[in-house]
Every structure is written in C-alpha cells, then in structure tokens.
Write a protein that binds this DNA or RNA. Sequence first.
DNA 1: GTCTATAGAAGGATAGAC
DNA 2: GTCTATCCTTCTATAGAC
Lengths: 215, 215
Amino acid sequence: MTKDDKQTEEKIFTAATDVFEKKGLAAARMQDIADKAGINKALLHYYFRTKDKLFLAVFDKLADKMFRKFASIFERDMPFEEKITYFFKEHMTFLQKNPRLPMFILAEINRNPKLIELFLTKVNLNRIKERIAGDIAGKLPEEAVPHLLVTIISLSVFPIAAKPILEGILRTGGINYNDFIEERKTVAPEFIIRMLKQSAIESDEELQSDNKNHQ
Amino acid sequence: MTKDDKQTEEKIFTAATDVFEKKGLAAARMQDIADKAGINKALLHYYFRTKDKLFLAVFDKLADKMFRKFASIFERDMPFEEKITYFFKEHMTFLQKNPRLPMFILAEINRNPKLIELFLTKVNLNRIKERIAGDIAGKLPEEAVPHLLVTIISLSVFPIAAKPILEGILRTGGINYNDFIEERKTVAPEFIIRMLKQSAIESDEELQSDNKNHQ
DNA sequence: GTCTATAGAAGGATAGAC
DNA sequence: GTCTATCCTTCTATAGAC
C-alpha cells in the first residue's frame, strides 16, 4: 500500500522477470531473484508466497506484453500491403528489444501446457481475424487467412527466437546477426507482398478451372 | 561390452532422451529417467557419471539427428522448385514424428550458449550453401541465399516448435492443428515458389535501375 | 515491512554389498 | 553390472526477532 511497498514489490517483480526470462521456471533460483532485487529470500515469499505464484505473475505479464504488441500493430488502419511492411518493422524492432521474450513464452508453454489457457485469455483473435478478413477481401480466399497469419508470425518470430543458433550459423558465413535482422525487416514483408501479387496473377489465370470444395 | 551392457545403456539413453526432450535439462529428474528405464539411479551414474554428461550425450545425438535430416534433403539432386516442395513435405513430416525435437534444441541452446559450438560441429554449411548457390544460379542474387534459407527454416520449423500454442489458437478458430500442418506442407512451398517467380518478374522490370552496392 | 536463522524436502552422487 | 542405503548439497519455504 505505501510507497515503499510498491517499490519493493516492483523491484522483486522486475528482478524475477529478468531471471525467469533468462533461465526459465525450472532453472531459476529464488536466491538469484532476491540478490538481483537487493533484498533477501524471505521477502520474496512475503510478497508472492511461492515461486510458482511469482512465476505465474511474471508469465501473465509477459504473455500480455507479447500479444498486445502484436495486436496493436494489426489493428492499425492502413492499406494491407503497407500494414505488412509496417508490421515487420515494428514487431521485429520490438522483439529485438525483448529478444528473450518469444523463447520464454514458447518454452514455458511447451513445458506446461496449462499455461496455454492463460495465454489464450490474452488473445482476442476474433478482432484480429475480422480485421484481416476485411484487409484482404478479394485478394485472397478467406480460408487462406490462418496460413497467411502463421506465415507472418513464423517469419517475424523465428529469427529472433532462434537468435543464438542463427547468430552462430551466420557467423560461420561471415554475416553479422544484427545486420541480418535489420535487412530482414524489409526482406520479409517483400517476400509476402510478392507472394500475394503472384497469387493474384495465378487466381486470374486459373479463374474457373478450380472448383474443388472445402468445408 | 556384453549384450546386457548394451541393452542397459541403450535403455538408459532412450529413457533419458525422452525425459530431457520433454522437460529440458533443468527440470529433468534422474529418478524419472531411472524409472522410465526400469533401473535405479545408481546405475545411471555407473554408465554416465553425471547428469550433465548424460544430457550432453543426448543433446549431441539429437542435434545430429536434427541437422542430418535437414542436410540430407537439401543435398538431393532435383530441380530447385521441386526440391523446395520436396523439402517441406519431407522435413515437416519428420518434425511431426519428432514434435519436441526443434523446441528442445532451441530452448537448450538458448539457456546454455556453449551448446552452439557443439551444434555447429554437426553443421556443414558450406556444402549446403554451395548446393543452393548452384540451384538458384540466375534466379536470385547470391546475397539473397541466407534470407531464402532462413525463410525456409522459419516456415518449416516454427509451426512445429510452437505446436502447443498454435494448437490452442487454431482450436479457438475451429481448426484442427494436424489438418493445418498437413495443408502447410503444400502451402508453404507454394508460397516460396510464388515469391521466387514474382522476384524474377521484378528483376526483369527493374533490370538496370538498381545499382546500389553491397560488400 | 524486513531481516536472520533454520526447517524440511528434493535431488544428484557415492559407498559398499551382492 | 546391479542393487540398497545413505551422504551431502541445494533450494523452497517458514518461524520469529526487530
């Protein structure tokens, strides 16, 4: 309640975020968190009861952070191609500043499937889907939307989530990881836009030759 | 040396692979491994000395498995577009059968950067790069090869590595994850091939208007 | 609210019998 | 080579003083 309460709780939360993001739940140590927060272990338990509860608080916050950024970009009002270009620039820059965030979310959900439920409460997919359905109206069949979305996420998230390994591989080829990621902010949206153009061409050509049905 | 030796060591190794792949180094328990192998903890140490050494043996094997599959596909002799189609079908089917493999590699390298070195010894990139450079000769500028490769890997690996989360998201949209992945084996290569065609068109159009230099 | 001290449990590792 | 019993460290969590 008091000012000091808030400060201590925040210091703990910040330190815990740091440690959990870097090490994950299983490898994180309460002692490390206490040290980093400049207090002692007992105080951690005073504020958050158990390691699990502290972890959940951190996961909740980070899951929210992860999804909010994603959604906020997609809800912007601009032409679709422009939006894709904007998305990669904005989202990858965000991930560059939070390089451990995607891997943290992915790894922890992978280890504890119950966390998905928590994550999904953060995700309001309907709004995004409607947005995109409107954006691409006429450009792509509606069934293609999930594939387009997964393509976008894969291209944006994977090169950051796999940073250490990609960094190593690129280095052996004489390429600097950060430079590469900078390039990718423009290369990736170009990929997608080219694909969409080509897709339009093809659907023109094959207009009425394809009438398979899908439920 | 004896037949029983081999059997026990293999049982341990198999069990350890299971547990480490699912839980990761930090959360894995020697007791769990012993139980799963049908022996006791002491015997684990008799064969592998320490948890770390056992883990390293498993990681080494799995890193090898991961990269070997990737390389074996790319070294096949076929036209480039066909190879991309073949790659996604083959590689994603492989990952479907080993759904925890990519996340394991990524997460563990992320937690312990020293493992990259071990992983890179498995990777003979030069052979692959030369292969691809030959494949795309004339279709794409050589500097684009790393980007093309990262695009391919991102699209193939990410949807499997992020399985639990993607499964959850798709389910809220009434889509079955496995069906989706099956579709993706053809959608993803189509996507890349379209992009390459469009790329060819564009480089025709803009032939000599672009003469920026890159080192 | 914050600290020191310590309980109590878990897990990795070893000794020693068979 | 395999087992039981046990050591010892590490870590979460709590008790209790200030």
